[in-house]
């Protein structure tokens, strides 16, 4: 099996599975948030922050944040390896993407646990 040091799971099959599992988690989270906003038209701060104060919602949101990180990396790795042929430009772009993903992950955790 050919492996590549820059892909997430070090193998295409592993990335394939990570992409599907994270996609299902993000699909469920998207449906939940959209349904919550649709069924609570007069949403206020107390209800909104109350939702994110609950343990199950923090677990669900953290799971989704990790899924975004993995899903974005597998997807953007595929796109950058497909279209950016010069190695330097591709690796540079991928480093910027990794940094952005890391910032989003830390930012999300900080919001979730109310800094």
């Amino acid at each position: 099996m050919v492996t590549n040091v820059t892909n997430l799971g070090r193998s295409g099959l592993s990335d394939w599975l990570i992409q599907r599992v994270s996609a299902l988690i993000l699909a469920l989270y998207t449906l939940f948030i959209v349904a919550y906003l649709l069924f609570n038209p007069g949403l206020d701060y107390a209800a909104w922050s109350g939702l994110f104060a609950q343990t199950w919602m923090r677990i669900f949101t953290l799971l989704s944040l990790i899924s975004i990180a993995a899903h974005a990396w597998v997807g953007l790795w595929t796109v950058t390896t497909d279209y950016i042929k010069p190695t330097g430009v591709r690796v540079g772009t991928q480093i910027v993407i990794i940094l952005a993903i890391f910032v989003f992950l830390v930012w999300g955790i900080q919001v979730l646990w109310g800094a």
Partner: peptide, 29 residues
């Protein structure tokens, strides 16, 4: 693929709204 890239860039706006709306009643407003 294009929508995937757009969504990644759009995370900036989603995270801003997520952060601001949970920061305080004024932020939510």
């Amino acid at each position: 693929r294009i929508t995937g890239v757009i969504l990644f860039i759009g995370l900036i706006f989603a995270f801003w709204a997520f952060d601001k709306s949970l920061s305080s009643p004024a932020g939510f407003a």
